[in-house]
Simulated assay, not measured.
Amino acid sequence: MQIKASPSVTRYGLLLLLTIQNTATVLCMRASMINASAANQKYLVSTLVLTMEMIKVSLITALIVVTESNFSVIGAAKLLYKEILCRPLEALPLAVPSFLYVIQDNLIIYALSCVDATTYQVTYQARILTTALFARILLNNVLPIQRWLSLLLLMSGVILTQVHFHQESGDLSFQSKDATYWLGLLAIGCATMTSGFAGIYNEKIIKNGQQPLLLIRSFQLSLFCVLFALMGVVIKDGALVITQGYFHGYTPFVWLIAAMQAVGGILVAGTMKYADNILKTFATANSIALSCVLSYFLLGDDDTFTPTFLIGTFVIILATFLYSANSVPPKLTPSNIL
């Protein structure tokens, strides 16, 4: 007798898992940066990105074996040979989004070495705006006026998180942070651009492509990501890898981060397939709120919680909900997985 979970249990189970994964990955990555700096055992960001991509390829390969070839490794190998090696030119356009995804991962990890987890979670929501802009440019998508208003509200919230209210003078000014903090914000801004462009470009490729199997497209995208991540290791940190080793600074904590980041893409795919964009928005909002609380108690980021920051965070969450209201669930694409 087989026991099947109801659709509501599946949806909200995925919501819970995605919320935990989003929050835990960001907090763990930030904590690993703090611990590595304190112990003077910093791991190389480029190697972490490559490790994440290799785990992701392994997970997608396992999914292909299970879902596309009925647990047959030989059948999966034949399928990959037929769909990839026999049709290499069809995969070449995927090199562009793959390169951008690798850049994005490096930017995110660097940003978390410069800013606290809460600031990252809040400001990174600006990728909603960049995605909408690139969708208008590349796909000629026309957004209704209420969505543009929600995007303006979103940017207002992001700006509010970065200003400070002076009680004595009653003036607002940008928070006085060091150069490292502002470099972190710049990295987040660049990551929102790469995220928006890569996602929409990938969607355009999928719409114009001939590959019917989602997992095969995802596998192709992951292979390009591994290639570009490997090039990043060689070009950026090749000498250090030779002298101190590929896994220098790796702890069980770092391995956990790599695994959670890879699994996160699969959870997003499951959320898109079995739930909808609104539920994913709930996960995002829950993750922001949890990050604020846990970052305060676990990582000691108490200087972030100014009144303007909290108001800006609320505005961002509200704008995210308004943007997703009455939206049509997006088509599942490899950009949802990777």
Rank of each mutant, 00 (worst) to 15 (best):
I188T: 14
A39M: 04
L221M: 15
S291N: 03
L152R: 03
A191P: 00
Q121A: 13
Y120G: 01
N106C: 11
P334Q: 03
L94Q: 12
V328R: 10
Y274A: 03
F309R: 07
Q175F: 06
L107C: 01
D237Q: 12
K331N: 11
T320P: 06
I108T: 12
D302V: 12
V65P: 04
E68H: 08
L50P: 10
T123K: 13
V65S: 02
S176I: 09
L332M: 14
L48F: 12
F134S: 04
L279V: 13
S218K: 06
A5M: 11
L230I: 01
G170R: 10
K56V: 01
S335D: 10
I257Y: 00
F309H: 05
F197E: 05
P252E: 08
T47V: 11
F228H: 12
A285K: 09
T130D: 15
R127W: 14
G238N: 09
D105R: 02
K4N: 04
L85Y: 11
F309L: 10
V268F: 11
G265N: 00
R147S: 03
I235C: 10
Q244F: 08
S46E: 15
A269Q: 02
T51C: 08
S324A: 15
I84Q: 05
A319C: 06
P88V: 01
V66P: 01
K78Q: 13
L50K: 04
G184N: 07
G170W: 09
A179P: 01
A275L: 02
I242F: 15
T304E: 15
F253N: 11
L310S: 05
L92G: 02
L230F: 10
S173N: 04
V122M: 13
I337F: 00
N140Y: 09
P144K: 06
I188P: 00
A77V: 09
P330W: 05
L294G: 00
I84A: 02
V226W: 02
F219P: 03
E203P: 01
I109Y: 05
A76L: 03
S173L: 02
A198G: 07
S291M: 02
Q162K: 13
L227R: 03
